[in-house]
Amino acid sequence: MLSDITIGQYYKADSFVHRLDARSKIILTTLFLVIIFMCKNFLSLALMFVLLVVSVLACKVPVKMFLKSVKPIIPIVIFTAVINVIYATGGTELVSFWKISITTKGLATAFFMAVRIICLIISSSILTYTTVPTALTDGIEKLFSPLKVLHVDVHTLAMMMTLALRFIPTLIEEINRITNAQKARGADFESGKLLERVKAMIPILIPLFVSAFNRAYELAFAMSCRCYRGGEGRTRMKQPKMRVGDYMMLLLFAVIIAGVILLNHFFGKIV
């Protein structure tokens, strides 16, 4: 149940993708997301799909892990697809009943949306599976550091993200512990109407919040004991470095963008 949450999980392995700099991985993932929405016909979509499959295989993370991260969003995918089938207009009409008509365009749009959402999840999973959370937030901090000119406190935001990611497993453990304790007092989470079930969560939520706040105070105290004063003048032990591989990948993606644009241009647009 709760332990199935895979967001922000890191999978230890030694692969080319793992060794890439966090910054380039963030850029590549973002680019991938943009390109996947630029694809207008099956050929360009297929190209992106092949790229995704190659990346998944290259990162040496078991395919099972990716399926696990896709599983929870299947209902959303189906919902989006159905909505698209019903509402899209244009193309040849295949079936029509009542006020609904299913067209080739509708089916194509639905298919594209479904593939896009799944690619979206898998590509962001590649990012989180292959990058340790601290490297990820460090990367974000570096990438957004130009915003300092606009007086955005990038360091604090990145630190908040690091801490949030760090405490996901801790809080899950805490929830399990509290749930067991309340079950031992006869709390019932499995039966009753919706409202009753929501009410049954109160004995879990209140202790959870209390302990989360306590943890936050303790952590803040521990950080100030170690002289944490924010990002000002803070240096790093491990300096992230862009290597040849990183530049090669960026170049490859530039070529792929060009390829997608050309494919769109020469083979017609379906959606």
Binding site: E174, R177, I178, N180, A181, Q182, K183, A184, R185, G186, A187, D188, I202, P203, I206, P207, V210, S211
Partner: peptide, 30 residues
């Protein structure tokens, strides 16, 4: 669970009610 009452480690983390009375009454109420 009513016949075998288990009190877990650091049980103070299970307190949630507004008053001591209500919290102790949670089990019997269930």
């Amino acid at each position: 669970r009513f016949k075998v009452g288990v009190c877990f480690q650091y049980p103070e983390y299970q307190l949630f009610e507004e008053t001591v009375y209500k919290d102790i009454a949670f089990g019997p109420k269930n």
